[in-house]
């Protein structure tokens, strides 16, 4: 059968080298969502979608699209790009703010709807300026800050396992 496999396959296409660091970050975001609890009323049905919104564009946003349809606590992930629509029109559960949104991210955070949204970004200062999880790279490794006050105020519960791996900060400017 191996001979057949070798012979039956059309000319190989060389796979592009994957950027593993973005793949890891995407897997991190998947785990952030897994290890966060939303209030019980968040979903009408156990199999309703977990909406993962993205604001702006970068490689991580591209990579994240692969999470579409994956299950988190029974909820299929639905990736939705905010494009230019306001946040309030989307029922986001998770929001990834892309690196392209540096000038706008504070405005985005202020326009968050009332329901709890787990905000994540690689932008420097994100967690100290009102975001919940800030991803950064150190020694070639993906690390993250969690602003626990913001998470708590928004009604999200973050697993102790996630917190044990994070640098946890508070923030006096939280509303």
């Amino acid at each position: 059968m191996h001979l057949c496999l070798l012979a039956c396959v059309p000319q190989a296409v060389i796979a592009a080298e994957q950027n593993d660091s973005d793949l890891f970050k995407a897997a991190f975001i998947f785990n952030f969502a897994k290890l966060t609890s939303w209030p019980v009323y968040t979903w009408d049905t156990p199999d309703a979608a977990l909406i993962l919104c993205t604001a702006g564009k970068d490689k991580l946003v591209d990579e994240l699209k692969q999470l579409n349809g994956k299950l988190i606590k029974g909820h299929p992930v639905s990736i939705q790009s905010l494009e230019n629509r306001p946040l309030s029109e989307n029922n986001c559960h998770v929001l990834l703010v892309a690196t392209s949104e540096q000038p706008r991210f504070k405005g985005i955070l202020k326009s968050l709807p009332i329901q709890p949204v787990l905000t994540v970004s690689e932008l420097s200062g994100f967690a100290t300026d009102g975001g919940i999880i800030e991803i950064f790279r150190k020694n070639n490794r993906t690390r993250f800050l969690i602003n626990l006050d913001v998470a708590r105020h928004s009604g999200l519960k973050i697993s102790s396992r996630l917190l044990s791996m994070a640098t946890v900060i508070g923030n006096r400017e939280t509303p």
């Binding site: 994957q18 593993d20 793949l23 890891f24 995407a26 897997a27 991190f28 998947f30 785990n31 897994k34 290890l35 692969q66 999470l67 994956k70 396992r161 996630l162 791996m165």
Partner: peptide
Amino acid sequence: RLEHFLSLSFEEL
């Protein structure tokens, strides 16, 4: 690879 990453616990990842 992504499938594998997602199948790991966060600590393993």
